[in-house]
Design a protein around this nucleic acid. Structure first.
Length: 272
DNA sequence: TAGGCCATCTGGTCCT
DNA sequence: AGGACCAGATGGCCTA
């Protein structure tokens, strides 16, 4: 899995400076002690994932005698008084507990993200163009999945199977150029056959007149996306399509629901 | 080298 | 109180 990567980053990444944390602790001697303890905390990390409570319990006991010092009586009149709840003084034990909580929260967050990524990976597998070597990005996977769902539901709704070009057009709405190429490659279709000739806000292929599908009701709007490729269908891009066999997810679809691929070779040959 | 993508850390918020 | 979820920040890796 990503274990090795995780471990690498765990080892390499220092605890990031957060304003509150560093303000509170200001690199005190305690923190230096804590940094010495980082090794122990790191090794504890594995145990934490197994729901290790021992460390915490021990720390709680350690902290008992210091727990009650709420204080922080800013006797200093020079500084403006701070609003809000008074901050507890960061004792060594409290800091240790804080770090323990953080490590546990980090571990949970990692697990959560891994679960999310697993789900995304399984989504990749049921969406057209699954490839272990050329993985779709997360965002592209979601967009393609949305288009795929829409295209399939449109087929169900209309009761008609669209032509391949229209289907690919529907799949590629709002996708980046590389992903569009990938989808086309999966279908062994030349992207030029379904991409508009000129760049437009609303590509011509998305207009109902040019496609068997009605206009996409939930088409992706690409509102101010940071990177140019998103949502653009500029046919001036160079297409580097490496045709390969259909994705595993697509095969059953075309074999059962869309028996129109027999005409695919005709179309492809007519494109060249 | 810039930009895209990703994993991780972190603090905040909400919920149980 | 603790966990889940979220979004921002950060740094690493990869590619055009």
């Amino acid at each position: 899995m990503t274990k090795s990567y995780t471990e690498q980053t765990m080892m390499s990444s220092e605890p990031q400076d957060s304003a509150t944390w560093t303000d509170e602790c200001q690199r005190s001697q305690d923190e230096q002690d804590m940094e010495k303890n980082n090794g122990a905390l790191e090794s504890m990390h594995g145990a934490l994932e197994d729901d290790d409570e021992d460390g915490l319990n021990r720390l709680d006991e350690d902290d008992d005698e210091e727990e009650e010092e709420e204080e922080e009586e800013e006797g200093d009149d020079q500084k403006p008084k701070r609003r809000g709840p008074k901050k507890k003084k960061m004792t060594k034990a409290r800091m240790q507990r804080f770090k323990m909580r953080r490590h546990k929260a980090n571990a949970r967050e990692r697990n959560r993200m891994h679960g999310l990524n697993d789900a995304l990976e399984s989504l990749r597998k049921v969406v057209p163009c699954y490839s272990k070597t050329q993985k779709l990005s997360k965002i592209e996977t979601l967009r393609l999945a949305k288009n795929y769902i829409w295209a399939l539901s449109e087929i169900l709704r209309s009761g008609k199977s669209p032509d391949v070009i229209s289907f690919v057009q529907a799949l590629c709405r709002g996708l980046s150029q590389p992903t569009t190429n990938l989808v086309a490659g999966c279908l062994q279709l030349n992207p030029r056959t379904f991409l508009p000739e000129q760049t437009q806000e609303i590509p011509s292929h998305m207009q109902p007149a040019s496609a068997s599908f009605a206009a996409h009701p939930y088409s992706y709007q690409t509102p101010g996306l940071p990177s140019p490729p998103y949502g653009t269908m500029d046919s001036s891009h160079v297409f580097h399509v490496k045709p390969h066999s259909y994705g595993s997810a697509l095969e059953p679809f075309f074999e059962t629901a869309l028996p129109l691929l027999s005409a695919r070779h005709d179309m492809v040959s007519s494109c060249h």
